[in-house]
Amino acid sequence: MRAITISSYGGPEVLTYTALPDPVPGEGEVLIRVRAFGLNHAEAYMRSGAWGDVAAVTGIECAGTVARDPSGRLAEGTRVVAILGGMGRTRNGSYAELVTVPSSNVVPVGADLPWSDLAAVPQVYATAWSALHGNLAVRPGQAVLVRGATAALGQAAVTLAADHGAVTVATTRDPGRAGLLRSLGAARVLVDDGDLAGQVAGLGLTVDAVLDLVGNTALRDSLRAVRPRGRVCQLGFLGGLGPLPDFDPLTDLPSGVQLSFFGSAFVLGGPDFPLTDVPLEDIFGKSASGAYRARPARVFGFDEIVAAHRLMESGDALGKLVVTVP
């Protein structure tokens, strides 16, 4: 099979095309013929070496058809999506024509969507749904602030929160992207100047929950932006992977505020966070009907992976990037 491998840790140019033996599914695994895969910032971290030694073939999600399921659960040709399960990290991932995935991380799909549209949904929507409903326990009518909302994951979070009936406040560093966020359901858009807590206070807003994709560089400010006894979930590191220096709960964590983290790349689809908890079929259905604007911002060919990674890291993608596999 053709695969895209990490030749050495570094920039997008280290991604190279290689012929590898076709993988063989073991017990509890499914072999998938990949038709498209979404790009995720986690793959840039893996490619760069920021997460230490990882599998040669990266890629943490895909859409395709079942090539073989030794258990007989899924018939050959069944349309499926696959998420995580160690892909790209502890086992070869989805940047290839074929991939083996733990069966617990494979979900059959009934929605009639093109492969590129299917691949744009699973990782970002499953992650956003898990954080909104699991970590933040968001209820209809509550005010949710999504920090880093123009990223693909942020757009999914805005869409899901608004659809759930939350009053969604979205942030962006570019005022020109406010219209995009409002079209996804954001009731209000704030330009992130690094002092969102000050903006929230100045506007008299009450924020019940914050979903922070920016990460360590903004965490202290996010904690100050939420109401007493509110919740903050850190979901990403768009501001960089550098550690948060000298964090002191006594001075940095407001009394009563609950702080949590959701590392989907390590747990989603596992026994504690099963994919059966995520209403993926409903999400696909709403994407197919147009209720969710979940289509990819741009679709690349398999031979354009370096350009795709460069665009992802530029911050100018304005949504999910997808690669199709011929």
Rank of each mutant, 00 (worst) to 15 (best):
F262L: 15
E313D: 15
V169D: 00
L196W: 14
R224V: 13
T90H: 09
V232H: 04
V322Y: 06
G240A: 02
R73H: 11
D212Y: 01
L196V: 04
A209R: 09
M87D: 02
S260D: 02
A82V: 05
A201I: 04
R139I: 00
R2E: 11
I60P: 01
R293D: 11
L321M: 12
G194C: 08
T16E: 14
A308N: 10
V267A: 07
R173C: 09
V278S: 10
G194H: 10
V30P: 03
S314W: 05
G185M: 14
A44F: 05
S130Q: 15
R35G: 12
G230P: 13
A152P: 12
G285K: 13
V144H: 02
L253E: 01
G86Q: 08
I83D: 04
I4T: 08
L205C: 06
L84S: 07
V80N: 05
V322H: 08
A63V: 14
L280Q: 06
P102L: 13
A201C: 05
P140I: 00
S222T: 08
A317H: 10
G26R: 01
G49S: 09
A120P: 09
D117A: 15
L181V: 02
L184K: 03
W129A: 00
L132F: 04
E29P: 05
P140Y: 10
F300G: 09
T5K: 06
V207E: 07
S71M: 02
R89G: 04
H133W: 06
L118W: 06
M87Y: 06
Y9V: 00
T172H: 03
G319S: 10
A55E: 09
L181C: 08
E304C: 10
V99F: 11
A19I: 01
